[in-house]
Simulated assay, not measured.
Amino acid sequence: MVALVKAEFRKIFTTSLWWGMLAPVVLLGFGAGSLGGPMAALIDSVQELDRPVPLGLLALSMSTNFSTIFAGLFGAMAFAGEHRNRTISTTYLTGNPRGAVLAAKLLAYSGIGLIYGVTNVLFASLGSLVGAGMDFGTFGSLADWLSVGAAGVLTMVLWTVLGVGFGALVANAVLAVILPLIYKFMVEFILSLVLIGSPISGVSPYLPGTAGNGIVANMAVPLFVSAVAGPDEPNTPRAIFEILHFFFGGSYGHPWWASLLTFVGYAAVFIAGGWLAGRRRDIA
């Protein structure tokens, strides 16, 4: 297994895909973070607060939830890319049984997902500092920043391993890229709008994209409101939470750990599906 994992890392680092997908994560992280300064100025113009506004927490949520798609697409190419390049036969023949190949890819790509997650947190934090004029109050308390940052890193890893499972299932590079993009930015967006106010609106937090976003957002938004509202937090109107969730992801009243468990379930389903499909798929 160790040799298989090392082989996967060699495959990853001998191509440009890993850093090509990392570049937009860096840009999105820094860009989302730097928006905190103008937003803080806007808040101050409406109401002057006697406490720091931890917009860095929301920036971490925004950057993570926009960047995870790149981690997912990168993971999807673990198998789909090998099928496209016709190297999957050699991989399976040298890494028999096929389940061991899947396990090795999951371990190796989880490591790259970890790099993506840490990079996102660092650049979103750097952007927040720059946008806030080097004011560390933009992060809230150290515990809050560490909690939201850790959730962001975990989310990135989970999207990567879900991508590996999805790529193993479809085994087609075009579908592995197109289908996640269409689903996340079109299908689920339309579904979320349709579900608003419907009798089954409670289904929305359990959709894959919303669950993935909620791991970070359902932690960051309540922490942000708590830090800003202070002792008056229980009196904060629901509309405030819903507006923040609309822009930064997640769902009102839905705990982050429920989103985590839901998304882990989706990842497990795709990994199991990829394993079953890989066992039965003929190779040239």
Rank of each mutant, 00 (worst) to 15 (best):
Y92S: 11
G95I: 04
R98T: 05
G99I: 01
G99T: 08
A100R: 14
V101T: 01
L102Y: 00
A103M: 09
L106G: 10
L106M: 00
Y109L: 10
S110N: 07
G113V: 05
G113C: 03
L114Q: 00
L114Y: 02
I115M: 14
Y116C: 07
Y116H: 12
Y116M: 02
Y116V: 05
Y116K: 04
V118Q: 10
T119R: 07
N120S: 10
N120H: 09
V121F: 12
V121E: 05
L122D: 11
F123D: 03
A124S: 14
A124P: 01
A124G: 02
S125G: 15
G127T: 02
S128C: 05
V130T: 08
V130R: 06
G131Y: 12
G131E: 02
G131V: 04
G131Q: 02
A132C: 02
A132M: 01
M134Y: 14
F136R: 06
F136K: 03
F139C: 08
F139Q: 02
G140E: 10
S141N: 02
A143L: 12
D144V: 04
D144M: 03
S147H: 01
V148H: 04
G149T: 04
V153F: 11
L154N: 05
T155S: 13
M156S: 11
L158Q: 12
L158C: 02
W159F: 15
W159K: 12
T160A: 03
V161N: 07
L162S: 14
L162M: 15
G163S: 05
G165E: 04
G167E: 12
A168Y: 13
L169I: 09
L169A: 13
V170H: 05
A171D: 01
A171F: 05
A171Y: 04
N172P: 06
A173H: 10
A173T: 09
L175V: 15
A176N: 10
I178N: 00
L179I: 13
L179C: 00
P180L: 00
P180W: 13
K184A: 15
V187M: 13
E188C: 09
F189C: 10
I190R: 04
I190G: 09
L191N: 00
L193T: 11
